[in-house]
Design a binder for these strands. Structure first.
Length: 812
RNA sequence: GCCGAAGUGGCGGAACUGGCAGACGCGCCGGACUCAAAAUCCGGUGGCCUUCGGGCCGUGUGGGUUCGAUUCCCACCUUCGGCACCA
């Protein structure tokens, strides 16, 4: 028998798959179908172990579902715009496109070497004009409906480099990662999508998808629905109504002051007439410069009194109005009623400024409660609240809102933490935004017929007060599509989250030049049946993609409401510290191990380490052990191929074990996504097979082991399958366990006394309860334990155990 | 603070619906083969005790339900993760 040579075998089968287009699928609408998708990779220098894990999980499911009769779409592409390539170009010279395309070529070579069953005919890259052309087209559909709009929003700004910084370019200390200058906050006009319109739909439809609860919880948290009330306070001096949002209308009688966020639109109006107008303006200026995190971290609350008062609608009390930066401008209405007795932040402010604290909620039975007391449960009652005294807090709150509503001074309201999605970047390496700025007509869409607006080349990718694209003057200066007058192109680009919000739709119809996709095609393949990826994309990417699908559905462009019907979140892969330092300098990735052991052992091992949805540590010992198993399987199956008889009925114990393994592996992959225990099961079968490679059952057991391991180790399995005298395992139906062979003639009866195992007996499978009890009580060992004591109770679990309960005063 | 996940041998983990705790593998120990080593193969491997038959203990801690709990319930401890001046 020849030695196991993974490199030769893997090259051989990869060539055959490619020549036979083994994993390409057409869009012919055949059922059943399955769309198996992993989050597309960012093309950095090379693959890492995390990639190895995600794409192998998807690959196993792809093979499994194919062989179970589904038409499976399993595409691949590259999230190829973005900051790292641009920074590399600035650092090392060259063009981001060259760097990116070199990386793609490199990664693609690694992917093909690993042998994932990908339909490469559908490959796409988001930096390709044939892709972003349709992204621009989609943007225009959003834009014409007002779903994409511009507004001023704070950005992180480096005053030295004169540029906007992405969050990841700001150090933990709040400095520019390049020059170390303290980063400022600046208001700038930016592009947004109106995702907040869909907050409730994004929340509700989580109930319709099969995702891990933890991922759903993160999205719910991110959307952050709060139920409460909007209550109108009035500044009588100015005859202005100022609404506030509160989740605690039950505490309205406890309001003792009122706060506006520094950015609130009313603040400037107050400053105009206030005696201390300049002090107010100065406070606002200082607050604007501070980062949100800095504001939150402040030891003491700061603020300034305006001299104005508002009227509390529940009791017509006059409350002093402050401006303070602990109130956020972009949540609720940017103004709050302050109830220091029942809110920690208001309490802290009241302490600093010596303001009244009025208790209006008490525990029903206690009294000496701490202030602030924030609970508002049914065990609390209202006090100092006029007609509402004595009511449980939640009910009291509802009644207060009812009364305010009747008076037109309040209503029940819902608020979300979710903010509109800001997606424009002052960066070069992204999709151009197809609008122009015209002095006469304002923002004007580029006509569909002029798409794509192709990203022009520039000399320098460093932003210098303006986005790099501003350098491309020939490109920037155009005529307005509306009036024909002079206009300038948008020089900001789209964030990569836009690119990845719809790529799974383009895979379905990647070469369409008339439209982003054909609706029947997209409706056939979608929603994605299994989406696989990391938890780090649980919020942003996966909320944005859901938002896109909902909008596109409302626009009639597709017929579903959710992109990802099921989601599997893979764990993180780490290396031990010793391994890291041993190969200091270069990151250890799958390429290194594939070169040493071959792709199949690496594929197997990444899933054998542990449950794929939990974090795991990759070790050299582990992959060595797996290589040992693979060689063992190789040797045993080769022996079977040459030694075991053909065409004999396989119905002995080894055949039964094989059927049991089929059942186990099918359930593990198909239902439980327990990829590690499926491998264990095949190992067990292999161990049993190794005891007899020449018997009548051996051939069946070997064929079963090879067939079941195929999704994990497709090259090895294919080669062994051929040696067993067959062809094209990847196209073979998945094996089905014979129910009759799963039935056992005998089983091991466990006999317990008072719940402790005392004996095990082989018993006929069709023994009656009475037979089991008789067998149990006649056992010598059992008798010695019973020693004549009275059996008070006998529990019989058919085909499992007998538990004899003897009295506590028994003499056992 | 709110939300989520997890605690099992020396290690990764298994036990799916309440029924034999530790499958499978790593590591380690012993043996075979070898001049020797590696590789390979065979056997052993939770702890304590043992008259070698076996016995007792054991799934983060303390309670509870049950004939029976790693699994269900209550309280707590520890670790990891998300959100967070969100009114």
């Amino acid at each position: 028998m020849d030695r196991y040579d993974p490199h030769a075998i893997e090259a051989k089968w990869q060539q055959i798959w490619e020549a036979e287009h083994a994993f390409e699928v057409s869009n012919e609408r055949v059922q059943p179908k399955s769309y198996v998708l992993e989050q597309l990779p960012y093309p950095s220098g090379s693959l890492h172990m995390g990639h190895m894990l995600v794409y192998t999980i998807g690959d196993i499911v792809t093979h499994f579902r194919r062989r179970n009769g589904a038409r499976v779409l399993h595409p691949m592409g590259f999230d190829s715009f973005g900051l790292p390539a641009e920074n590399a170009a600035i650092r090392e010279g060259g063009h981001p496109r060259e760097i990116t395309e070199r990386n793609i070529a490199n990664i693609k070579r690694s992917m093909k070497r690993i042998g994932w069953a990908i339909d490469w005919s559908r490959e796409l890259s988001t930096h390709d004009p044939s892709y972003y052309r349709w992204q621009q087209w989609l943007f225009l559909r959003f834009f014409e409906r007002g779903l994409a709009y511009r507004k001023a929003a704070p950005v992180k700004w480096c005053p030295f480099d004169q540029t906007v910084l992405a969050n990841e370019q700001v150090t933990a200390e709040g400095r520019c990662e390049r020059c170390g200058t303290l980063v400022e906050s600046r208001l700038m006009e930016q592009w947004f999508f109106r995702i907040t319109d869909y907050a409730q739909a994004l929340l509700d439809d989580l109930d319709t998808v099969d995702w891990p609860e933890s991922i759903k919880a993160r999205q719910r948290n991110w959307i952050g629905r709060s139920d409460g009330a909007e209550v109108i306070f009035r500044i009588e001096e100015l005859a202005v109504d100022v609404p506030v949002f509160t989740t605690r209308p039950d505490t309205l009688f406890g309001a003792t002051f009122f706060v506006l966020a520094p950015e609130h639109e009313l603040v400037e109006r107050l400053a105009e007439t206030a005696e201390n107008g300049e002090e107010i303006r100065e406070y606002v200026r200082r607050a604007a410069v501070k980062k949100t995190e800095e504001r939150a971290a402040a030891e003491e609350k700061t603020g300034v009194f305006t001299g104005f008062h508002v009227v509390n609608p529940v009791n017509d009390e006059r409350l002093p109005v402050y401006v303070a930066d602990y109130v956020l401008t972009d949540y609720g209405t940017g103004a709050i009623m302050a109830v220091p007795a029942h809110d920690e932040r208001d309490f802290a402010f009241a302490q600093t400024f010596g303001l009244d604290v009025r208790v209006v909620i008490r525990p029903r039975d206690g009294e000496a409660e701490d202030v602030p007391y924030v609970s508002g449960s049914d065990d609390d009652v209202l006090v100092n609240s006029g007609e509402f005294d004595g009511l449980p807090a939640p009910e009291g709150g509802r009644r207060i809102v009812d009364r305010l509503a009747a008076e037109g001074r309040g209503r029940f309201a819902v608020n979300y933490r979710l903010r509109d999605w800001g997606w424009s970047r002052q960066r070069y390496w992204g999709a151009p935004i197809p609008v122009v700025y015209c002095e006469a007509d304002g923002i004007v869409a580029v006509p569909d017929s002029e798409l794509p607006v192709v990203l022009p080349d520039v000399e320098d990718f460093k932003p210098q007060g303006k986005p790099p694209l501003a350098q491309a003057e020939d490109w920037v200066n155009v005529t307005c599509p509306k009036c024909g007058g002079p206009a300038k192109r948008e020089t900001e680009t789209m964030d990569t989250f836009v690119d990845s919000a719809w790529y799974f739709l383009r895979y379905c119809d990647p070469h369409n030049e008339q439209a982003p996709w054909g609706r029947e095609i997209v409706d056939y393949w979608n929603p994605v049946d299994l989406y696989i990826g990391g938890v780090d994309h649980a919020t942003m990417h996966m909320i944005y993609a859901r938002y896109f699908v909902k909008v596109l559905n409302d626009l009639g462009m597709l017929g579903f409401r959710e992109p990802f019907a099921a989601f599997y979140s893979n764990g993180w892969v780490t290396f031990g510290k010793t391994k890291m330092s041993k190969r200091a300098g270069n990151v250890v990735g799958p390429d290194d191990f594939v070169a040493e052991y071959g792709a199949d052992p690496v594929r197997l091992n990444i899933l054998f380490i542990g449950p794929a949805d939990q974090d795991m540590e990759w070790t050299e010992e582990g992959v060595e052990g797996m290589a040992r198993f693979v060689r063992r399987l190789w040797r045993i199956v080769n022996e079977v191929a040459s030694e075991a008889p053909r065409g004999e009925e396989a119905d002995g114990p080894l055949a039964r074990k094989a059927h049991a393994t089929i059942a186990k592996v099918t359930d593990d992959i198909g239902r439980r996504f327990a990829f590690n225990t499926a491998i264990s099961a095949v190992m067990e079968l292999t161990n049993e097979l190794s005891r007899d490679t020449r018997g009548a059952d051996s051939r069946f057991a070997a064929e079963t082991a090879v067939s079941l391991i195929q999704p994990y180790a497709p090259h090895l399995a294919e080669e062994l399958w051929q040696r067993l005298g067959h062809e094209r395992l990847w196209g073979q139906p998945w094996p089905v366990a014979d129910e009759a062979m799963l039935e056992r003639e005998t089983f091991e009866l466990v006999i317990q006394i008072n719940g402790k195992v005392r004996d095990r007996l082989q018993v006929s499978a069709d023994a009656s309860e009475e037979d089991l009890i008789a067998a149990a009580t006649s056992s010598e060992r059992v008798r010695s334990f019973l020693d004549g004591a009275e059996v008070r109770q006998t529990i019989v679990v058919p085909r499992k155990l007998v538990n004899l309960v003897v009295g506590a005063n028994g003499t056992n």
